[in-house]
Design a protein around this nucleic acid. Structure first.
Lengths: 208, 208, 208, 208
DNA sequence: AATTAAGCGAGACGGTACGTCTTGTCTTATG
DNA sequence: CATAAGACAAGACGTACCGTCTCGCTTAATT
């Protein structure tokens, strides 16, 4: 949890939104935070700026979130909780499925409009351990998990060797991808995606 | 280059240190910056703090660097320019060599004293594209390159298939590693390193 | 009147206490206000502080008083309405009577516990004209009046010349006294009181 | 002294204006403070307001003064240091001289433009002892002193009895006057002034 | 050797934002 | 239906830094 716990929630409860909280303000804050991080970047994103843009008192932000990173994380995940609900496609052809999804993801990551808030979160997380945990738990981990599951399905179908560690295999695909994007160590082209998938899968196939 | 060019250096030159610059101040600034980033973190690192700790006027910092990220990057690379001079060991056993180096690196990355400044740089880079380029060029890229070279040597020795993209292969090893560290998506254990290396190499071997 | 008129009182009425008003809360508010003004001073006295100390909702204060000055004034006068009921002693010796009362008042005014709220009221009044009127009408004016009456009695007894303006004479005694206290322009000693009384009375006596 | 001492002045020195201080800012702050206190009153006078109106950073105010009261006091006394240099007129007729000056002062005090800042200072002083001392020492005391001196001159001329305490006599004239103004206990008319002066002087004359 | 000018420590300056506190209004649920 | 509780928009508080700008001082490099 990144937001502060509701002060009046019963101990042991899920710490949900208290009764008196203004939903209107909450949405306005999210909208303002996302808009601003896109316009000015994470460093120049300020609580005052969010409050002002949202037409909200500063205290209303400080009452519910401990930092701009927390606001941003909640704003970012407010709508996307169900993004990974469906899992990866499974046509029976693992390589094709992975390439299909990763090419689409590459296109998305190459979109400047998407970059700012996501990169901001990555950055915020790297410095604030608590935000980091929430970021990983809410956004990264679910993303990894669908790959792990697709790989496990392939493993059960005999397409991937039984002794392969599918978690590590998923990271072998995903980490070079996100590393290139985050650190700008290389371009996210379809060609790169294809090479990456092919080269990872080479090692996963059952040995004859 | 991250530092500002010397104002009196001829245009087009490498932007070297002008004669009058105080080496004593430069070192004091680096020491202060590294010490402070370890103590208070990147976010709370301030130019004023560095200047005060270094016993230096603020202007002396602003004269030579455009941002705290640039100071930090120069401070970080001031001593480490020769770190990758030797390349990776080559005993003829690629898996053993990679595991040896990566285990050592894992130990280093698990050291809290090492974390703060390095993570700070990663973060600084993610938001400031110019710093990012310098960070990648001076620190990340050389680190990747030694792996690429070791893999190419193995390829020439026939230990790795000729059609393997060694750059991507290097990233398949390194990115899951650094991603786990940066994003805290998992622990950097020797076991993880071994699994990772084994699983990557499985796919690189020439096919019988 | 400083308190707001009761919202439900009939127009034109004296604005008395409405039936539903909580007497318990009213007293708690007065106690809290007086205690706090003594502890933190007038400037740092806040409505929130009073409400919190009194265990009362802020709205309960805002409903009945327009400002903290009004609360304080009502709190201060709640008990002291009958203070001046008896008037000044009249032993037939005007000088002795005045000195007796003023020496006692000086002792009272020199007591730090008494200073804070009274000084606070004086201050509050100086800036807020409405509070000022109430302050003067309820506290200062009655205090002056008893002196005026004692002087008039002396005048009728032939101890004071018939053409003396007793109101001005009362101010000649009282104002130097309260001015010294309020502005700290001098100490309130018995000696000062005696000199003051003697010197004022010198001019009041009928001329031979 | 109400302003903070100059941090770099030698210990024991008069604590004057440091070399680096911006005279331009100092004047702008005084002008803004006086203008604002006249427009919005002391309670609603804010440091931010002064800074903004003066085109000055808040820190520049906080650097040199501890409170808005101190700013106001310095602003008020910046120009008026020589106001009492000449003393009271001495035509040989004490009553006439006192009435002349006090009538003029009454007119001045009845001017709304004059009221706000002066009343503000009186109020500020009543709550802040340090400001009070400075207020009394710089403004009130010099004002009283010229009356004391005029009375002493009259005493030496035989117009006032030798055993009169001229300090107390001065307060007998001035305090009723300023009390009426500050507390609004009565109007400051020429008639009041005349009665006051006559009645005070009645008691000061040598007894025949 | 004297002159010059850049670099330097210091820190004031106009600003922006921080995170906290209080104001006066409004809403909810409790008795 | 007045109350205790407290969320809310607003905005001032006093502090911390920003990046710019002098101010004298020190110290090479040039006269």
């Amino acid at each position: 949890m990144v937001s502060k716990p509701a002060p009046d929630s019963p101990p042991g409860s899920a710490g949900g939104t208290p009764t008196r909280r203004s939903e209107r303000s909450r949405r306005a804050i999210f909208d303002a935070a996302l808009a601003l991080v896109g316009e000015v970047g994470y460093d120049k994103l300020t609580i005052e700026g969010i409050a002002s843009r949202a037409g909200v008192g500063k205290q209303t932000i400080y009452r519910w979130w401990p930092s701009k990173a927390a606001v941003l994380l909640d704003a970012f995940t407010a709508d996307s909780d169900e993004d990974y609900a469906e899992g990866l496609p499974d046509t029976g052809d693992l390589a094709a499925d992975l390439k299909f999804v990763l090419r689409a993801t590459a296109d998305e990551f190459n979109d400047p409009a998407f970059q700012a808030p996501y990169r901001a979160l990555a950055v915020a997380g790297a410095n604030d351990e608590e935000v980091s945990r929430a970021f990983v738990g809410r956004l990264l981990e679910p993303g990894i998990r669908v790959y792990v599951e697709r790989l496990r399905a392939a493993q059960e179908a005999g397409e991937v060797a039984a002794d392969v560690d599918v978690r590590v295999a998923a990271e072998m695909v995903l980490s070079p991808f996100s590393q290139r994007w985050l650190m700008r160590t290389g371009p996210l082209t379809h060609e790169f995606v294809d090479t990456l998938v092919d080269q990872v899968l080479r090692g996963l196939r059952p040995r004859g």
